[in-house]
Design a binder for these strands. Structure first.
Length: 614
RNA sequence: GGCGAGGUAGCUCAGUGGUAGAGCAGGGGACUCAUAAGCCCUUGGUCGUGAGUUCAAAUCUCACUCUCGCCA
């Protein structure tokens, strides 16, 4: 029985490079979860894309004198490169700047309006007569009315850190041309969150039993203490999605409102690209489907409150508006396993201070799986965590290399030397030549200690799998690593290097068992360490790969061209079940899976922190 | 100031009522297939503080305290 699983991954804002905190916060856990679900045989759809709209991007484009599109495409290209190098297997990684996303967002808007959850309200906003337009808060500077600092922005004062009401700014001036703006009335659409508060609270309470405490308690606490109030979903801006309404040409849908719709629009775009336009319904309207949202804690409000509110608000009207057909309600999030933050050497990661480790830069010096390993064992699942370069080196050398890499290497190289590069046959040599041997299941000859080891390792398919399904990835990886220890212990007890001198059949049984254990561990670790599991898979003599392939594609629509990352599933998918390694199989020449790192690199890497601007 | 999360071995963290755990680091030992890796033994904690509930509390309640985050 296969289940549709939607793996909805946070949309990176296309105005900065991705750092290790972003990776461990949402992108990496999503990929681990998705890879497991695919191995398990479930129907996975993992989608995301670049968040291309909003003022941070227009601010950057103004500063550089290029179009917002140029800015977003530059960072988007970096995302695609990083995801391919790190092996983040998105079924589709698109962008919010596509004709499809525009259409889906506008349909959501219209469906909410039709259902009575939108209203308009007039508010005051700075208007520049010389520029002839309303100014977003970030585009106004002046004196902070709290601390008196003169360089405060309309939305926030960088001196005292307070969030400001821009209309109270003293001596306001337009950032763009220095002109003095005036307050004018402007009308906006609001999402009537007050009306949706009851259903949203009910949605959260139904999930309180299994959601992470920091996600559900925070959301419920916030609603109970402050209540939900209407929130503007349009703003005066010319970059973004037009409001589907006569006379609203100068306004755009607010980013917070439309970016989350990407989870839905990307599923729809994926379905269209796959040549099966209705296929998105499997994840979005079927009752048995589950949607997991992988995000960082800064996004909790939007995914645990706002997005559910939008989905509850459109109800079955979305399909009606979008497809003109009778529709079912859209599925609400099943889980939002938000992660906390990762600090860098005990300080907050900061792009402007160059305090952090950036994904693409890291991969110019190190391999992807050690990064995936370290980010998983330090994943901030319950509280903030810390990246420490000494710890990175230690864990790479003492855990990844010593416990697992060395285990694979010691068994494979021993086999290669003593059994001519083939899996030893568990049949006793006396039976091997006889005619009947092919009919005898080789497991029959395994000794109790062999069966015991294999049973312990095979139990990992349940225990590791259960942890992953509960999105406890640190625990899952820890369990898999513990099983590596079991195999190391078994080898020490059996000592095949001694057996081989006195009783080659016994040594053969030991090595056969150890190889099969490694073949299992390769799968148990594959969601976490896909590159090296794939390499080991190949050394064990398999030809069909465990996982599928990523590729990019350029799509043309009315907005122009956008590049997406896609995924082609493996022809013969891997399976989340015990190995049935057969004797006699030819192995490939083994090579170490991981490299030991010099402890000195910790100092070298720390020296890079905070250095010259990127 | 309000809300949320956290404060458990030197370090990173598990552990939500029943005699304190893991990994790493530290100390000792036997082995040698392996990336001087692996294996065995071992040192180490009054579970932030105080009180309460209970036959029994790291685990529940209350107060206090420190850290981080969000909001005001």
């Amino acid at each position: 029985m296969t289940k549709p699983i939607l793996v909805a991954v946070a949309w990176p804002y296309a105005n900065a490079d991705i750092h290790v905190g972003n990776l461990t916060g949402s992108y990496l856990p999503a990929d681990i979860f998705a890879r497991y679900q695919r191995l398990k045989g479930n129907q996975v759809l993992m989608v995301s894309g670049s968040d291309a709209h909003g003022t941070p991007i227009t601010v950057k484009s103004d500063a550089e004198g290029v179009s917002p599109e140029t800015v977003y495409k530059r960072y988007h290209a970096g995302f695609l490169e990083l995801f391919q190098k790190l092996g983040l297997h998105y079924d589709l990684f698109s962008s919010t700047h596509t004709q499809n996303h525009f259409a889906v967002s506008q349909a959501m808007f219209l469906a909410l309006k039709k259902n009575g959850y939108l209203y308009t309200e007039s508010q005051q906003q700075w208007f520049s007569a010389s520029l002839g337009k309303f100014l977003p808060d970030r585009y106004v500077e002046g004196t902070c009315y709290i601390c008196g600092f003169d360089g405060a922005r309309g939305d926030q004062c960088d001196n005292c850190g307070n969030v400001l009401d821009s209309t109270q700014l003293i001596n306001p001036r337009a950032k763009e041309d220095g002109s003095t703006p005036e307050l004018r009335d402007t009308t906006h659409y609001f999402l009537d969150l007050g009306k949706l508060e009851g259903p949203v609270v009910q949605f959260l309470e139904e999930r309180q039993g299994y959601w992470r405490a920091n996600v559900v308690n925070r959301s419920l606490g916030w609603i109970r203490s402050e209540g939900l109030r209407g929130r503007p979903i349009t703003r005066d801006l010319d970059w973004g999605i037009p409001v589907p309404e006569e006379g609203w040409d100068s306004k755009r849908l607010y980013v917070w409102f439309e970016a989350v719709i990407g989870y839905l629009s990307a599923a729809i775009e994926w379905a269209a690209l796959s040549g099966e336009p209705g296929a998105w319904h499997r994840w979005w309207t079927e009752a048995g489907a589950r949607a997991y949202y992988f995000i960082g804690k800064d996004n909790i409000d939007f995914h645990a409150i706002m997005w559910p509110a939008e989905l509850i608000g459109v109800a079955d009207e979305f399909a009606h508006t979008f497809e003109g057909a009778e529709g079912k309600p859209l599925n609400l999030p099943y889980d939002v396993p938000a992660n906390e933050f990762l600090n860098m050497e005990d300080r907050k990661i900061s792009g402007s201070r160059n305090w952090g480790v950036w994904g693409l830069d890291f991969l110019t010096r190190y391999d992807p799986d050690p990064l995936r390993y370290y980010l998983t064992v330090t994943m901030p699942e319950t509280s903030d965590a810390n990246w420490d370069w000494d710890d990175f080196v230690r864990r790479n050398n003492n855990e990844l290399v010593a416990t697992w890499g060395n285990l694979a290497n010691r068994v494979l190289s021993f086999t290669y030397r003593h059994w001519e590069g083939k899996v030893p046959d568990p049949l006793p040599s006396s039976l091997r030549a006889s005619e009947t041997s092919e009919a005898i299941p080789s497991d029959r000859f395994l000794r109790p200690q062999d069966r015991q080891l294999l049973a312990a390792v095979e139990a990992g398919f349940d225990s590791v799998g259960q942890h992953i399904e509960n999105v406890k990835l640190r625990a899952a990886l820890g369990e898999a690593m513990r099983l590596c220890g079991e195999v190391n212990r078994y080898l020490d007890e059996q000592a095949p290097w001694a057996q081989v001198k006195t009783d080659k059949d016994a040594a053969g049984l030991t090595i056969y068992t150890a190889l099969r254990a490694i073949d299992n561990l390769k799968l148990l670790l594959a969601p976490f360490l896909p590159h090296t599991s794939e390499a080991l898979h190949s050394m064990l003599g398999y030809h069909a790969p465990l996982f599928g392939e990523q590729y990019t594609e350029r799509i043309n629509d009315d907005l122009g061209e956008h590049e997406v990352l896609r995924y082609r599933a493996a022809a013969i998918p891997g399976h989340w079940r015990p190995s049935t390694l057969e004797g006699g199989r030819a192995l490939r020449e083994p090579a170490p899976l991981y490299k030991k790192l010099e402890p000195s690199i910790a100092d070298e890497e720390r020296a890079r922190l905070g250095g010259g601007a990127v």
